[in-house]
Design a binder for these strands. Structure first.
Lengths: 249, 249
DNA sequence: GAGCACCATATGTATAGACATAATAAAGAT
DNA sequence: ATCTTTATTATGTCTATACATATGGTGCTC
């Protein structure tokens, strides 16, 4: 209780106490931030052990767990590689609508509806703490399956978090697919709801106003902050989200 | 191509090659099957090491990973315990609708609509390979939030997989809640879709036919086979499924 | 009985060493 | 040139050991 000015604790937030957890989080953040992009061969166990001044087993423990979590791919002799973020939860990962359509045996096509490369901050996002979405590109597009409207997509991309977006064209390629291959690991929040189709959505999807729609809203972020927001509207009862869960996966 | 009768391969399916994986799967199956129920104190590391004739570290590796996966809870001195299957995927785990309603600050109530303890096999499930659902109990019920219909539930419970169901009453307690505390670990498949309310559902939910509904269908199984099927219908746009995903969780 | 010091114990972490295994690369034989 | 053998290398697994740490239990004191 004396008046001595105390220095702040060393650890920023929740600095892991054990070494293998620290290594695990170090590697994870390098991957999530994009410093180690998918396909990159990360240092060998022996190298990291030397860097951290610890035994190989300690590094091994961290890397083994990241492999189980799906962030890494390892093979003998070749080394350890950052895995492509292909399945951020198997079923709800609907980034690539093309795959979704083609897996159903249908022909995919795509049309850009509108593209505002320098839009102002939207108002409907204020509730989400997404104040980071101030300098954005705003895109609307439509996905077709066998020529029939399959999904109406409204998307916002942060120009701060993804500077490369200025050079991208969404005439031929959907923003979702472009982001998927451009932005490294990230985390996502989904909201799924049913709604009655209104105005724009009904018009583009070519369905009557009031028809039941499945709506998926997703906010994606990585270490640089909020990356993108998307609202996907699927018409009628034709679409189903499928998810399977087991304890260990 | 000769006519010699071959013996089946020793291993049933994919017998893990390494010891710590074998231990991991042994423990997991004991938990999933219910042999080790939630709360049960599993043998100490040293005991299991002796049983398997291996070092404690090998057992530790298996148990540590099961702990990360959420199947176990460990504490020093006390031992290792089977965890309650509380979050088989955080957001989509909607087994307990009461919690869901009360978390939204509303008052929960429940009403049993119909109960057929000895129903015949339903036809609409044939596509799911759920031929195990032949001897079933069929229940319909309604969940309320502040007195307003919140969710219409149709449920089928396998009397083979859950023999105890014959003694259960669903007058006061919803079948979902009863199953949650009765049946041990399991895996689940979800299908989420939007639909227009029809007939029964519209009537009980007190909404107009054609109103958009969020429909969640779930099939649950454990080591004894298919346990239960449920269809939950949420009226209008009032309900949202929320899910957050990060690489490691 | 309440409070306290102390011990026993199960997990948590880390290590150095050992050998297995798979995949690549290099050297050798045909 | 192509096939084969061999060596190299990084990961995969396992051990025996060591000490740290949290915590339930025991017994002591007051």
């Amino acid at each position: 209780m004396d008046s001595k000015i105390e220095t702040l604790p060393e650890q920023k937030k929740t600095e892991p106490q054990s070494l293998h957890l620290r290594i695990l989080h170090d590697v994870e953040s390098k991957i999530v931030s994009g410093a180690w992009a998918p396909g990159f061969r990360i240092p060998f166990e022996t190298e990291m052990a030397k860097d951290y001044g610890c035994s190989r087993m300690t590094v091994n423990k961290a890397l083994t767990q990241l492999t189980r979590a799906g962030l890494l791919e390892r093979s003998r002799k070749s080394g350890t590689f950052v895995k492509a973020p292909q399945s951020l939860s198997a079923a709800l990962e609907i980034t690539n609508i093309r795959d979704e359509v083609e897996k159903a045996g249908k022909t995919y096509s795509y049309r850009l509806l509108s593209d505002n490369p320098n839009a102002s901050r939207p108002d409907f996002l204020s509730c989400l703490g997404a104040s980071a979405f101030c300098d954005i590109r705003k895109v609307k597009c439509l996905h077709f399956a066998d020529g029939v409207p399959f999904c109406f997509e409204e998307r916002i991309i942060s120009r701060n978090a993804v500077p490369e977006v200025d050079a991208a064209s969404f005439e031929q390629e959907a923003p979702g697919a472009w982001l998927f291959k451009t932005v490294p690991w990230n985390s996502a929040e989904h909201q799924i709801s049913a709604c009655a189709a209104t105005g724009e959505a009904a018009e583009f999807l070519d369905i009557a106003c009031g028809t039941a729609c499945l709506m998926v809203e997703r906010i994606t972020q990585n270490s640089k902050g909020y990356v993108t927001w998307a609202r996907l509207s699927y018409p009628g009862e034709q679409h189903r989200l499928f998810a399977k869960f087991t304890p260990t996966g």
